[in-house]
Each structure stands twice: as structure tokens, then as C-alpha cells.
Amino acid sequence: MDPFVVLVLCLSCLLLLSIWRQSSGRGKLPPGPTPLPVIGNILQIDIKDVSKSLTNLSKIYGPVFTLYFGLERMVVLHGYEVVKEALIDLGEEFSGRGHFPLAERANRGFGIVFSNGKRWKEIRRFSLMTLRNFGMGKRSIEDRVQEEARCLVEELRKTKASPCDPTFILGCAPCNVICSIIFQKRFDYKDQQFLNLMEKLNENIRIVSTPWIQICNNFPTIIDYFPGTHNKLLKNLAFMESDILEKVKEHQESMDINNPRDFIDCFLIKMEKEKQNQQSEFTIENLVITAADLLGAGTETTSTTLRYALLLLLKHPEVTAKVQEEIERVIGRNRSPCMQDRGHMPYTDAVVHEVQRYIDLIPTSLPHAVTCDVKFRNYLIPKGTTILTSLTSVLHDNKEFPNPEMFDPRHFLDEGGNFKKSNYFMPFSAGKRICVGEGLARMELFLFLTFILQNFNLKSLIDPKDLDTTPVVNGFASVPPFYQLCFIPV
């Protein structure tokens, strides 16, 4: 058959498939802009700032609406009420993970971030239990974070109060905490193996944040037939998995079943207990991918939040002064901060919360999916439909947070200066898919920041009023603009 005829037939089939998918069930789905064949609503979305586009569309179609990214149908949730109703009140029905062709290629359905069903539930339950087990290797997770915080302070001392970009050092600290939990080992910041790991993690975040990856996920045929950065992403992930597998083999040879040292040991012990169960989800494949998931999810998000926190503290020296006064009063100079201190430091706690609220790190979270046909607000959402959640619409709700575009710790303080919780605080998402490392991340943010401010004054290279804190939105995360500062020993 003539190649031209084959091409026309293929394009015609794709067009018909697109029209059929977009028209099927439209009477039951939430409203939304009319999609174009094949490309859907992509032309109506700013790929570099999806969150802003969703906010604009919500003003037209309401808090629940339908979009098509290519052939992929998505239902968008915008605003606290619908997000709570879906992710919390109907948590089980909305607990699936959205379709990610690239991740599915890399992870093969294993791990904790992109798995679904029984596998996801069992691996998540085990990971939560293990991360909360403060007795691994007779050292609590808090001990590990405190140790890394001391190392971080010593690295900052080496800058000798000269101007520096904190990106690298602030990236090393949370990565080392995860390494300590998974591998029972922290690395020197100049260790070549550690630097290679950091390089792969950072490069992957840069790649994932590009519009090209959005295109690959919406048109998965590209993955096999086109060159691009997605190939580098898959190569980096394969490198990390190979490295983790080597460490798993080392653990198998040296493990003491009665004295687990780290996450890998705990997983291997669980595998041993379930070795007679042919349906067990505790396999080497799941261990390797879960460890890679924890490394990827637990490094860049925390380091970016820390980097943004220091920029905001530079911009608002009056806030920094209040935090340091609270540190001096509650902790002093002669001991290290600990998590028990947080309950006695409402202002510092409010500042950490406000940093996370203000920066809105992951504006749309990772997409969910419905696990069955769901009736939601008089609409029928078919099983498997991807759910896109606007966390921006919750964290920047102007009824809950007056002047949401302003950095103001009073958003989390009552009139008496006591810490005030808010149900709208969802930087880790909400419901059954809430970030498994939430507790660890909150511990790291509090301890790293208090250790830094206990030991250093922060000095800006320019007038604080002239510092730009506008986030650089890159399609996946909101990151701070480049800046330098000086760490002046107190």
C-alpha cells in the first residue's frame, strides 16, 4: 500500500478516535471549553503556568470542569470545598494515580508514587510505618536530621561569610537525610558517588519541569519514536535504579534480621516474612523503585522550600529577627534545636507554614484518578478519569488567608500570638494520596531553619526591599529566582 495512503488512514483513525473520546459521556461530565481534535484544549493552557490557566477557566466554568490534554480527559478541581469533598470525603474513590506514560515506562507500575490498587496500598502502608518507626538502627529519624543539620551548619561556616548561592548546600542536606534513612549512610558533600546522585536528581527535576515532558505524557507515541530530553530522564532513572540495586545486594549479604539498620533492611525482612506468599507485593523490584521514589520526592521539594525560605527571610528581616528572638528565648545557644521545641515556638512554626503556603511549591499536585465511576456534584466521572487538583486555589484562598499574595506569618497566628491551624494548609496535597514523607519534610524544615538561624545572621547583597521573591514557574514547580547571601556567624 502507498505510504501516503497509510499515513492518511492513520491520521484519520487518530482523528476519529479523538472525536469519539471527547464526545463520549460529555453530557455527564462537568462543563469545559470545547476541545480541538487530537490536541484537545492545549492551546487554551499556558504550559509554563498551568495553575494560572486553571484559575482563569474556573471563573468561566465553575469549581469543577473538564479539560482535554491531547486525548487525555481530565476533570479539574478548583477551590477548597471541591478539593476537600473529593480528596477527603470521597478519598477512596479519588485515590488513584493519574496516567503518566513516562513514569509507567520507567517504574513499570512498581513503587509508591505511580503505583495503584493493592500494590500501592500495601507499599504505602509499609513505608509510612517504617518512616514513623523511630527505632531503626537504634537511631531515631530526628537524630538523623539533627546530625545532618549540624553538618549543614559546618558547611555554611566554610563560606566564611562571603557571598554564596545556597542551592547546592541546601540540596545536599535533605538528600543526605533520605540516604541515611534508606542506606544507613550519609555522605560527605564532596563524595563523588553522592555528587553523581545529586546531579541525576537535579537533572531529572529540570527535565520533568519542561513543556516537552508534558507533551510526551499527552502524546506517548513520542516516547519511542522521537529524540528528546525524555530519553535522558529514562537513562538517569535507570542509572539510579541500578545503583540502588547494588546497595540492596550489599544489604542482603550483611543484614541482621533482628537489628534492621535502615529502610532497605526493613523491606528485606518483610520480604523474608512473605516469601511463601506468591501474591506478595514485597519484591526486589518494588524495593528498588520505592527507594528511588523516596529519593526523588524527598530531596528537591525540601531543598527548594529551604532555598525559598531563606530568600523570604532576607526580604523580611523583621520576621527573621522575631524567629531568632524566639530561638534565643526557648533554645538558647548551648544546645541543639529539637522537635519538642516546636510546641513552644508558635512564631517560628507560623513562619515555616507561611513559607510553604506562600511559595505554593507544587501548584497542581500530582494528578489523581478516580478508581470507579463516581457521581460528584451531579456529574458522572468515569472510572480512570484523571483528576487535576489546584492546590493554589486552596493555599491562596483570600477568605482563609487575607492578602494571600503577601508573605505574612500572621496567617497562622491567632490574636494572642498562638499558632493557628488551618484546614486550607495543603502543600502536601490531601486525602489518601497525601505525601508519604510529610512528617519528615516538616521535621527537616523546622530543624534546618532553626539550626541555621541559631548559628548565623543572614545578610543580603542588596537592599532587602529590592529582592525579587516572585516565583519562577516552570510548569511543574514554583522555584525561587537566583540569589546570593552571606551567612554571618553569630
Rank of each mutant, 00 (worst) to 15 (best):
L71A: 14
Q356F: 13
C172L: 11
Q324S: 10
F263G: 01
M339A: 09
P260D: 02
R26S: 13
E274A: 09
P174T: 14
D2C: 10
L67W: 03
R150T: 06
R186G: 03
L391A: 02
S180Q: 12
N176F: 01
G137D: 12
P166Y: 01
I331R: 01
S390E: 00
K118N: 11
L7W: 12
K421Y: 10
E250G: 08
P409H: 01
M129S: 14
M240R: 04
L245D: 06
K249Y: 12
G416D: 14
T55Q: 13
L29F: 11
C266Q: 12
V288S: 06
L54F: 12
A103W: 13
K249N: 09
D463T: 09
G228K: 05
G298F: 04
N217W: 09
K160D: 08
R333W: 13
L310G: 03
R357K: 00
R26V: 11
G25S: 12
E272C: 12
S162F: 10
V370C: 11
A106L: 09
A86L: 03
F428A: 00
F376G: 00
L268T: 03
I213P: 06
D224E: 14
V374I: 11
I88A: 07
F94V: 03
V330F: 08
L152Y: 01
I264M: 11
I123C: 07
P174F: 07
P35T: 06
Y379V: 03
E81Y: 05
D360P: 10
V479A: 15
G70I: 02
K421N: 15
T302E: 05
M136I: 15
I215R: 06
N116D: 09
V177K: 02
F194D: 03
Y68L: 05
V82H: 07
D349V: 09
R150M: 12
F446S: 03
V355R: 00
K138V: 10
N41P: 01
G40C: 00
F134S: 13
S51Q: 10
Y189N: 05
E328M: 15
V113A: 13
V8W: 15
D341Y: 06
P260E: 06
T34Y: 11
E85M: 07
I141A: 07
A369M: 14
I462L: 13
F428E: 01
T130V: 13
E81A: 11
I215M: 07
K28V: 13
I331H: 01
H411M: 01
Y61A: 01
M271R: 11
S242N: 12
L485M: 14
V323H: 00
N258T: 12
V473M: 15
H316N: 13
A103L: 14
K399P: 02
L312H: 05
R433I: 03
D373Y: 01
K399W: 13
I45R: 04
G117P: 04
F126D: 01
E92A: 08
L314E: 03
P464S: 13
I327G: 01
E122G: 07
L67E: 01
Q252V: 08
I269H: 08
R342F: 09
E285A: 12
E444R: 00
E81I: 04
F401L: 01
Y61C: 01
R377T: 03
K273M: 12
H230P: 06
E415N: 12
Q324W: 04
G40R: 02
E318R: 10
V473T: 15
L16P: 06
K138L: 12
E142N: 05
P346H: 03
T210R: 13
F263L: 10
G32V: 00
P317K: 08
S12T: 14
I434K: 08
T450K: 05
I264Q: 00
A161Y: 08
G298P: 00
I47H: 15
S393R: 02
Y483C: 08
Q356T: 06
T371R: 09
F263P: 01
N403G: 11
P489T: 04
H78T: 11
R186L: 01
E241D: 07
I223Y: 10
P33C: 00
G79N: 06
K52F: 05
K232C: 07
D224I: 04
P480C: 14
A161D: 08
A149Y: 04
V330G: 04
Y61I: 00
F219R: 04
W20T: 10
K273G: 11
F65I: 06
T301Y: 07
V76I: 10
N133Q: 12
S365I: 07
T389A: 08
L201N: 07
I205L: 13
N218G: 09
L312I: 09
I47R: 14
I359P: 00
I284E: 08
G437A: 07
D466S: 11
F487R: 01
R261S: 05
D224R: 14
A477V: 15
R125T: 12
G417K: 08
P402M: 15
V352L: 12
V330P: 00
I47Q: 12
E325M: 09
H411K: 06
C435V: 02
F239K: 15
I178W: 04
K190W: 10
L413E: 02
D293I: 03
H251C: 02
T301R: 07
R139D: 14
A369E: 10
G437M: 04
R125D: 09
V82P: 10
V177G: 01
E81Q: 15
D224Q: 14
V83F: 05
I123G: 06
T66G: 02
D188S: 11
V479D: 10
L306N: 01
S390W: 02
S127A: 15
K185S: 14
M255K: 12
T299N: 04
E325D: 14
C266V: 12
K28A: 11
A291H: 01
T34V: 11
I112P: 04
F419G: 02
L380D: 12
L467P: 04
F476T: 10
A477T: 12
E155G: 07
D397W: 02
G27E: 10
S254R: 07
K48W: 04
I88M: 10
F168N: 11
C10Y: 05
N474L: 10
L43S: 07
T386S: 10
A441M: 04
C151I: 12
N204D: 07
Q454D: 02
G343E: 15
D243I: 15
N423F: 08
I244R: 01
Q276M: 14
P337F: 01
L87D: 02
Q278D: 12
Q340C: 05
A106I: 12
D265Q: 02
F183T: 06
D256R: 06
L445T: 07
I45P: 03
Y347M: 05
V64L: 07
E154S: 12
P363R: 02
E199L: 12
V352K: 01
D46Y: 05
R139N: 14
R125E: 13
K399D: 14
I169M: 15
A350M: 01
I45C: 05
E405Y: 12
Y358C: 15
G98R: 13
R26L: 12
D165H: 03
L201M: 12
F263Y: 13
R261G: 05
